[in-house]
Design a protein around this nucleic acid. Structure first.
Ligand SMILES: [Mn+2]
Ligand SMILES: [Mn+2]
Ligand SMILES: [Mn+2]
Ligand SMILES: [Mn+2]
Lengths: 148, 148
DNA sequence: GCGGAAATATAGCCTTGGCTTCATTGCTGT
DNA sequence: ACAGCAATGAAGCCAAGGCTATATTTCCGC
């Protein structure tokens, strides 16, 4: 700084903000994989690595690596050459993520975003929506549905 | 899949969505650094690595590496032991990112998110807001400001 | 002018999350 | 029963983005 630091606390707030965004991003992949594995189990009865990879738009080894991380974090289990299954914790996460995803899409649509665009943007957006923001979204959808 | 692939195109749409989210994330850091360097130049007349690192909440070598990537992408220039400067392209990006950031914060507040929370979440959210969504946000803010 | 402190650069390490290539296993049809 | 193909696993490469530790340069006060 050119002068004697009149903005030390502002700098701190900036740092805090970026730090939170990085933290959110760090769990984004786990969230998406958990949600998707839950979807596949519900739709097809099982979640195979090949299906996971296809839906994520990545190669099988990449999906396998992600599954390994899920297992390490206690969110999934799997036996060699068998499918992938969510643990209790994984299922809970999947359900939460799915619900949040839907609310984010609905809010985007409610404020005028085209449906297709809302679906696309929500996939990245959702991971940065805090519980407070999610609550505000719910409230908004509720009151705007009621009184129109 | 258990049966003969009735959802091939749905799988494709999923993959497309995740692919877009990954692409957005890949440029998020460049966007934040560009915006911040622009801010520092406007506020202090120059952007030093130490200040950039402090605001990003990161160590100096990390900031230096990010600046190296900015230079590689043609968004910034710098001479050893001197400050960092945005190129024409970098300045354009910074301005665009700053404007988008503000609109995202404003929209969050407009739908009922507490101000402080809006500031925090926007830092991560913004990078996944497409031009279509941004346009919808602008429109919403405009009409809700006009007719209340 | 110079010496010490602060800023900057450099080197090297780690994890994440992509990829390709190749080995191994499972499944399925004849 | 088994041959061959599909699915999975294993190994190893790369870039991004974080870190620590150390070297170098600049700057400022005296
Ligand atoms: Mn997502
Ligand atoms: Mn999602
Ligand atoms: Mn940001
Ligand atoms: Mn921002």
């Amino acid at each position: 700084m050119s002068d004697d630091e009149p903005d030390t606390d502002q700098t701190f707030h900036h740092a805090e903000r970026f730090s939170r965004a990085r933290a959110a991003q760090a769990v984004a992949l786990l969230e998406d994989y958990a949600e998707m594995i839950g979807d596949l189990m519900a739709e097809a009865g099982e979640a195979r690595v090949a299906d996971i990879a296809a839906r994520m738009g990545v190669t099988h080894p990449t999906a396998t690596k992600a599954v390994a991380r899920l297992k390490r974090e206690g969110l999934a289990v799997s036996r060699p050459y068998r499918g992938v299954f969510l643990t209790e914790a994984g299922q809970t996460l999947a359900d939460h993520v799915r619900a949040r995803h839907r609310i984010v899409v609905d809010l985007l649509i409610a404020v005028g975003v085209p449906t297709e665009t809302a679906e696309l943007d929500a996939e990245g957006l959702e991971h940065h929506v805090s519980t407070q923001t999610l609550a505000a979204f719910k409230q908004y959808l509720d009151t705007s549905r009621r009184g129109d």
